[in-house]
Design a protein around this nucleic acid. Sequence first.
DNA 1: TCTTCTAACACGTTTGAAATGG
DNA 2: ACCATTTCAAACGTGTTAGAAG
Length: 508
Amino acid sequence: MYVHEDYPYPLNPLTKTYGYYPQGQMNSVCQPSCGEAELMSLPVHAALQGRELWDKFNKVGTEMLITKTGRRMFPSCRVTVMGLNPKVKYVLMMDMVPFDNNKYKWNRDHWEVSGKSEPHLPNRFFIHPDSPALGERWMQYPISFHKLKLTNNTLNSKGLVVLHSMHKYQPRLHIVQSPDPCGGHSGGYLRFTFPEASFIAVTSYQNHEITKLKIDNNPFAKGFRDNGLSRKRFRDKDMHQKSVSGQQQNRTQNHQASLLDTDDEEDEQVSSSVESTGALCLPHMKAAPMPVSNPFLSAFMKSGGAGLACGQEELSQSTISHQSQHMLNSKNRDSRRPDDNLQYMCASLPEAHSTRIPMPQQQPCHSPDIQTPAVLQIYSAQAKLHQSLHLPPKLSRMQLPESVFRSLDSNPKPLSDIFNTIRARVVAKDSQIIPQHEQTASGSNREEKALIFPAVQDCGATFCTEQYTGHATEWPAFNGNTGQSSTEPRSVAFSQLGEYTGESAAGK
DNA sequence: TCTTCTAACACGTTTGAAATGG
DNA sequence: ACCATTTCAAACGTGTTAGAAG
């Protein structure tokens, strides 16, 4: 068994978001209890950004190009996470899971099922290069996975996400809490799927409407927009081969004139798919600097603990807009497009289906006082924050700390590199923090320190455990059907193995 | 014949090193 | 000498296209 079937957590009527709520805390402020894996005790929310754009694609039927060398997604996955403990480290990953068990084909103007899906490929994760990082950092800005690449090449070793063409997938976000060697937290694992971002993987676009949407919204495809140049390029090339060199000049001029007319016609037919649906939000863009340093955290606080029914007002779109604008100005290359600003500003929190992986083995807190202040701080600050939030001034890239950019410009490094990087960080950190007696108590050998991401291991994907340190005993032992103990070291490269299939995930 | 896939292509964007100016 | 800004070329990302493969 992989894990339990994904199931949606209750819809919060206030924020209209799905999120993980600790048991019995749907209507109260979260008070993490000592001894519970902290991640499991927080009302964690994940929201997909750019919902407007996703909706546009969804209406038509989103397609994502996959190539041998890897192709980025567009729209890309940008996620905001709320409800994490600001002072605890988390690893964020994303993968693609089958949307259903069907294979599709394009039939003239619509997608139709053409049979059963092929056996699922080994699962691969795109690990956010900033991982592990503090919850504070993850909540501060939208987490961009825009450099995640999709491929159909099963032999790639560059950390690309491998998909089957003509199959439907949906993104899934994994939040893995790093074990806290001092606090005695067991870590934890949450995952969120985004059905609204589902797509069919294709090797060439089938639906022309999708192509238009991509061209209209993706800045890299500007060259193909109906400006009378790009399309003419191809036609010119074609015509050039047929034209007679002696009479070329006059004929070309006439031809270009006719082409321009043609393009004009197309312009009428294919009006830009980007609409100023967020016009109402625009006035906010001129607002004053925001008094809260962490826009998402403040949004979270204002909204009543990320959607908890605490008697707070519904998280208004304008509130989101204020926060979002900060992110817009802060960086995010996509924000150069005014269209994207609108998406951002007007984005409501989309639905995300989350799954909680229970922690069968809890450990007592060594120091409860260390565990809770950061969380309580959020809720106390929430009560104090009544004034409306203001917009920050526009910031240039140069004005912002490099750390801000890193998350948004994360490079899709090979998984081995990512793991090496994480390992280096963990090793460096552990060497400073872990008391000597704990190091020996938990086992100083690699075997016992190997499982820093057991939940993912249980997904079937295997990590190169040689590259990790951690405390195996601090991780749950909800074991998969591999028959292998979760604490048993696995020495197979992460990028090469992994038996996760949708079937196994569903327990079939 | 049809569907799916691949590689080359041109164009626009991004990036980072070098050049420039204060 | 130092720092901030500008310039520019290479790298990268994009959809299109023709043709290959099954």
